[in-house]
C-alpha cells in the first residue's frame, strides 16, 4: 500500500479508513504519510532499508508466497517449542497484508501492540469504493461532458496573467 503523494489532498479518509491505524496527516504539509516499504528501493530491485539494516536479522523480504512459506516453517518450529497457537498474521478480512508477522500467540493478536483480531475495511471506504465511487465517477463524467458542451458553445476561458502570477506567489509562499 502506498500513496501518490503528489495527488494527496490531505482529506484524511485514509486515516479513518485504515483498519490498522497507520497513516498520519503531516501538520507541516497536510499530506498523508506512512511506511511505503521503501517502494523506491523495491522498484529498483533492492530490499527495504529496514530489512537491510536490521542488526538482528528479524525482518525478511520477498514475494508473498516465499514469505508465507518461510512463515510456515517458523510456525512449525514454534509449535514444536510448545506455542500451540503460533501462526501467521495475514488477516483475510482485508485480503491479507503486505507486512506479515509470525506470532507466538496468533489467537491473541491484541497482545502485539494491539493488532486487530479481525480487521475489515471500514464501511466508509467500502461505501466509497462500491457505491459512492461509481456515482462520483458518473457525476464527474457528466461534469466533463457538461464542460465539453460549455467549451464547444462558449470557447476557452483564459486566465489573466495577473491571476496566474498571484497563484504562483501563493504556491511559493507555501514552500
Amino acid at each position: 500500500m502506498d500513496f501518490h503523494q503528489e495527488n494527496c489532498i490531505g482529506c484524511g479518509y485514509c486515516v479513518s479508513g485504515c483498519p490498522f491505524n497507520v497513516p498520519r496527516i503531516s501538520q507541516k504539509d497536510s499530506k498523508a504519510y506512512k511506511c511505503t516499504l521503501c517502494s523506491d528501493r523495491v522498484a529498483v530491485g533492492l530490499e527495504p532499508a529496514c530489512v537491510k539494516v536490521c542488526p538482528t536479522g528479524s525482518i525478511s523480504f520477498g514475494s508473498k508466497v516465499d514469505m508465507q512459506e518461510l512463515a510456515a516453517e517458523r510456525v512449525t518450529e514454534l509449535k514444536e517449542r510448545g506455542f500451540k497457537n503460533a501462526g501467521l498474521y495475514d488477516p483475510a478480512g482485508v485480503g491479507g497484508t503486505h507486512v506479515m508477522y509470525v506470532l507466538n500467540h496468533a489467537d491473541k493478536p491484541a497482545l502485539y501492540s494491539g493488532l486487530p483480531a479481525d480487521p475489515t475495511i471500514a464501511p466508509t471506504v467500502t461505501l466509497w469504493k462500491s457505491v459512492a465511487k461509481p456515482l462520483a465517477m458518473a457525476g464527474m463524467a457528466a461534469a466533463a461532458l457538461g464542460g465539453l458542451f460549455h467549451y464547444v458553445m462558449k470557447g476557452p476561458n483564459e486566465v489573466s496573467k495577473e491571476i496566474e502570477a498571484e497563484v504562483e506567489r501563493e504556491l511559493e509562499g507555501e514552500k
Binding site: 542488526p55 538482528t56 536479522g57 528479524s58 517458523r74 518450529e77 514444536e80
Partner: peptide, 16 residues
C-alpha cells in the same frame, strides 16, 4: 547485546 543475540536466534532456527 542485540546484534550478538542474532546468533542465538540462528542456533534456534538452524539447530533447534
Amino acid at each position: 547485546h542485540p546484534c550478538g543475540f542474532k546468533w542465538v536466534t540462528e542456533a534456534k532456527a538452524k539447530n533447534k
